[in-house]
Design a protein around this nucleic acid. Structure first.
Lengths: 213, 213
DNA sequence: AATATTTTTATAACACGTGTCAATAATGTT
DNA sequence: AACATTATTGACACGTGTTATAAAAATATT
């Protein structure tokens, strides 16, 4: 990496760190580009050079969070894709719990920005992951062979992201969000399950986590 | 109503009409408070006096739309609550189709505003309606008697609203949104249906409308 | 009719995200 | 070392939602 790129990377990191620090210590409402420039020790223009927009800075923070989450690794589920999928929900909840105001803040800020191109990348990523898992579930015999993994994966991913949108806007708690997704996921997967997995899924559906009032 | 209240009501209507006109003829990006004041023939301050904020003006437009929709009346479904619920989805789609850019525009504008109090009223309304319908479905014998109508109604309403959030942000078409909701609704209702309604629901689930890729 | 209250108006201002543009500094290339 | 390229800076400006303030107009009260 050339020294120029090194400097850019360094400045990007400084700006991200400053943004995170401001959000943590002063609240996300006080994250303004002018304040960010001051705290990062950089001119007002530089974040625009290095990121493009305020939203892009926040996206960088979200990417860091996503990276941190993926580093946790998906809980092993003894090769049962469906269980892995459901466990991921619990992991998301735990992850959010660990730093709720921060994650919700950046998520909401991104969602309430009128940079719609943001969403499609994360949407595509989620859909791809879900499709892979559902294809595994089919080849594992957890889901019926006539199941359309593409369509099902897309449906499940959108379900998650749609609820996350409401979560970001503060409508309900981490737990409520995940319970909503869990219920929706289980119901849909029950429509495609084999006899092998039906009992487990049905039991999970009938034993809901707290969905809230 | 006192003359003062009459004047207020009149001005409110003028402002709403001006806002709608601007959105229609110049696009929602050109709906600024200054332009709104000019077109409405009113001072810049007046919309703030009468509505509170720009978001509140848009909420008034959305309320008008919701009112117009409810005036259509829910499609009769021969007393089958579940069918009525599903038909409502089709009605929503038709309604959106009839004026897509307008409805999506105001919906997106409201959703991307940081006035979160907005959402709760429409959310509460939707939940209440769904709960009523689900209670009917139970007493009609369409859903099992041990079904929790409160919980189920809430779940279904949130499913709809969560998807609508993504719809507003332009992620997918009217039809795709409703197909997503339809699939999710059918799957969940299938978990609570009686033998009477199972065949119909299962057939509907297996015959999805186009969900898009 | 005179007075008090409430609303609207006019004007200015604030903080915000973002853009322009020239100057300057840092880095790359020869 | 001299030059060319690129990145950062600084100061300013624009349009936005929103608020402040005081004057004017409309309405209510007596």
């Amino acid at each position: 990496m050339s020294r120029r790129e090194e400097a850019k990377t360094f400045n990007r990191a400084r700006i991200c760190a400053a943004a995170e620090s401001i959000i943590r210590s002063e609240g996300i409402d006080n994250l303004t580009m002018r304040r960010l420039a001051v705290v990062a020790g950089v001119s007002l223009r530089t974040p625009y050079n290095l990121f493009g927009s305020k939203t892009d800075v926040l996206i960088a923070l979200l990417d860091e969070a996503v990276f941190k989450f993926t580093q946790l690794g998906l809980a092993r589920a003894d090769g049962v894709a469906i269980v892995g999928m459901l466990r991921a929900l619990g992991q998301i909840e735990t992850f959010f719990d660990s730093d709720e105001t921060y994650y919700r803040g950046i998520y909401a800020a991104i969602m309430t920005s009128d940079h719609p191109e943001v969403r499609s990348t994360s949407v595509d990523r989620a859909i791809a992951s879900a499709r892979v898992l559902m294809a595994q579930a089919i080849s594992n015999g957890e889901l019926r062979a006539d199941t359309d993994a593409q369509s099902l994966g897309r449906h499940l991913a959108i379900t998650l992201l749609a609820v996350l949108g409401m979560w970001g806007s503060g409508f309900f708690s981490n737990r409520e969000s995940m319970a909503q997704v869990r219920r929706a996921w289980l119901a849909v997967m029950l429509q495609h399950c084999t006899d092998t997995s039906r009992l487990m899924l049905a039991a999970a559906y009938d034993n809901p986590s707290d969905i809230g009032d």
